[in-house]
């Protein structure tokens, strides 16, 4: 009969058992380390997401946004946590109140945007802080994985702006082909190949205080375009007539696909003079090159084939 200590020793001498014991102890210690907030007991997924949050890395916890007491323990966790100023999940209209506690400047900028305007009008689905920055997984904007990173801006905006149901439900007239038409631009083609120093949505349309291009205060308003394109890091020193270099960039770039999506009837009268000619010209030039390329290559490739077969038949040409 072996003593219990001897028995344990023999068991641990088996290297597989030893490894298993070590792994279990490592995992359990990790598990306990993650329970530094009591919310983790129930909201495992959410708290795990929060580990990637730049706020977590700077020492903020659940209670800083949600209120309550996240350091309580014992059997009445729920009751103790949801005490005091606990707000739970903030209403979409009130998310700005949570963020403005620490980010008043950004919130003020945001409150000048068309997104906030729409929320005030009773469209709570319009973008608020969390739609661009993420909810629990807010990363620093310099982080390449951040949804609000400059290079990820097209995908982030397209979440809503390519969604036909959302766009037509709230505010009739917002076009849903903005990302697709942006993809025809040089900016996207460079960005797509990893060159991030190009303009994305937010560089032209602004970020927190984005406005409709019809608003004279908008960065994409016709008269403001030279200033927007001529930003120091983009095209400094540009000097062009904004009227001839219009802001209808997205529509023109749809022409690469060969279809005329531009609705001329919506044009302001003074714009028609500038655009109708070149527009039709661009369309017909695209058609012209299709015919020219197909024709020339077709005829000459046909002759190459004829040449090839004539050699087989005649064998000796001269």
């Amino acid at each position: 009969m072996l003593s219990p200590a001897k028995n344990l020793y023999l068991l641990l001498k088996n290297k597989y058992v030893l490894i298993l014991v070590l792994l279990i102890s490592v995992f359990t210690s990790i598990g306990y380390a993650q329970e530094d907030v009591s919310c983790y007991h129930c909201h495992t997924k959410v708290v795990s997401e929060f580990r990637n949050n730049v706020h977590y890395q700077k020492g903020f916890t659940c209670a800083d946004c949600h209120g309550g007491n996240d350091q309580s323990n014992a059997s009445v966790i729920s009751y103790n946590v949801m005490s005091g100023n606990f707000i739970g999940r903030p209403n979409r209209n009130n998310i700005t109140n949570v963020c403005s506690k620490c980010h008043p400047v950004e919130t003020n900028d945001y409150k000048m945007s068309i997104h906030w305007e729409q929320i005030k009008k009773g469209h709570p689905e319009a973008a608020t802080c969390t739609d661009c920055h993420g909810i629990h997984e807010i990363r620093a904007i310099s982080d390449p994985n951040s949804s609000s990173n400059h290079a990820n801006s097209p995908a982030t905006c397209a979440k809503c702006h390519s969604n036909k149901e959302m766009m037509s439900a709230w505010y009739y007239g917002i076009k849903t082909d903005r990302f697709d038409t942006y993809k025809e631009s040089f900016h996207w083609r460079a960005l797509d190949k990893g060159y991030t120093l190009v303009a994305t949505c937010s560089d032209c349309h602004g970020n927190h205080n984005t406005k409709s291009h019809t608003d004279p205060a908008s960065t994409t308003y016709l008269d403001n375009l030279p200033k927007t394109c001529g930003k120091e890091k983009c095209h400094p020193g540009v000097n062009f007539d904004a009227k001839i270099a219009s802001g209808l960039v997205h529509d023109k770039e749809s022409l690469h696909t060969g279809e005329l999506v531009f609705n001329k009837s919506n044009l302001e009268p003074q714009m028609k003079d500038y655009y109708l000619g070149p527009f039709d010209l661009a369309y017909w030039i695209a058609i012209f090159f299709k015919i020219l390329t197909t024709g020339v290559i077709g005829i000459f490739a046909g002759m190459v084939i004829l040449d090839f077969f004539s050699r087989i038949k005649i064998h000796k040409r001269w």
Binding site: A245, K252, Y274, Y275, P278, F279, A282, I285, F289
Partner: peptide, 12 residues
């Protein structure tokens, strides 16, 4: 020249 012609250049 208008921007439209610059855009035309990319097609041509």
């Amino acid at each position: 020249i208008p921007y439209a012609y610059v855009h035309l250049s990319t097609i041509i």
